[in-house]
Structures are given as C-alpha cells and as structure tokens.
Deep mutational scan, measured.
Amino acid sequence: EPSQADLDALLSAVRDNRLSIEQAVTLLTPSSGGGSGGGSMDAKEILTRFKDGGLDRAAAQALLAGRTPA
C-alpha cells in the first residue's frame, strides 16, 4: 500500500509530466490488473482531475489513499 510520501511523489511526477497518468495508475495498482479498488473514482480519473486542476493535492491524495486496498 502506498504511503502518503509515495502518493505525494507520484502526484508531483504526474503534474510535472515526469510520469504519465497510465504509468501512475500501473504503479498504484500493481497486482489488481489495473482495476479500481472499488472506490467511487478510479485512480486514472483522480489523477486526470488532479492534473487538470479539478482536484487539489490533498484531495487527490485522500482519494487515492482511500481507494487503495489495505
């Protein structure tokens, strides 16, 4: 399960175009075949909204942490 520091680094990389959204989703869902963790939004949607400015960093982190299976 990614830590808050991992999520923060991942969000920074996506925002700075050092990591594509697809690459980030793969890192967030290493063994689930890329499927959502059952959250209301999947990781790709969360990351896309964050990059487009629709979500701030704290909200994106909380959503990603919340949808990651324990």
Rank of each mutant, 00 (worst) to 15 (best):
G37P: 13
Q61E: 07
R49D: 03
E1Y: 15
M41A: 06
A5R: 08
S20I: 02
R18L: 14
G39Q: 11
R67T: 11
N17Q: 05
L7G: 02
S36Y: 14
D8A: 10
E45V: 07
A65C: 08
P30G: 15
L10V: 11
A65I: 07
S32M: 13
S32I: 13
S40C: 12
A43M: 12
S32W: 09
D42F: 13
G35L: 12
G34F: 04
A24V: 05
R57F: 15
V25I: 05
P30I: 15
Q4C: 15
L63E: 03
G35R: 06
L11A: 00
L55S: 01
L47R: 00
L11I: 03
T29K: 11
S20W: 02
D8E: 11
D16I: 03
L27I: 10
G53L: 03
A58K: 09
V14S: 00
L7W: 11
G54F: 12
D42N: 10
L27Q: 05
E22V: 07
Q23D: 11
R18Q: 09
L27C: 06
L10C: 02
P30L: 15
P69V: 11
Q4N: 14
D8H: 08
N17M: 06
A65T: 08
G33H: 13
D56T: 11
P30T: 13
T26E: 15
F50R: 00
G33Q: 15
P2A: 12
R57Q: 07
A24W: 01
L27T: 04
A13Y: 05
A58R: 07
A65Q: 08
K51N: 03
G66A: 10
R15E: 10
V25R: 02
D52Y: 13
L28Y: 03
G54K: 15
R15I: 11
R67P: 05
M41Y: 11
I46R: 00
S20E: 03
P69G: 09
L11T: 01
D42T: 12
D56A: 05
L64E: 00
D16Q: 10
R15V: 06
T29R: 11
F50E: 00
A70N: 04
D6Y: 15
A60F: 02
L47C: 01
L47M: 03
L19S: 02
G34D: 08
S12V: 07
T29F: 14
D56F: 02
D16V: 04
S20D: 04
I46M: 02
L55W: 02
R49L: 14
L47Y: 01
A24G: 03
D52H: 14
S36K: 09
A5H: 10
S20T: 13
S40R: 07
T26G: 09
I21G: 01
S20L: 03
V25H: 03
I21W: 01
V25F: 05
D6Q: 09
G38M: 15
A43Q: 05
G54S: 15
A5L: 15
V25T: 05
P69W: 03
R67A: 08
R49I: 05
L11C: 02
A60P: 00
A65S: 11
R57W: 15
G38F: 14
R49N: 04
L27Y: 12
G33A: 08
R49H: 04
D42K: 11
T29Q: 14
T29W: 08
S36E: 14
G53F: 04
T26M: 14
P2F: 15
L28F: 06
D52R: 07
D16W: 04
A13G: 04
L63W: 03
I21R: 00
G34L: 14
G34S: 11
D8K: 06
V14N: 00
V14R: 00
T48M: 11
A60C: 05
L47T: 00
S20P: 04
G35V: 10
A59L: 06
K44Q: 09
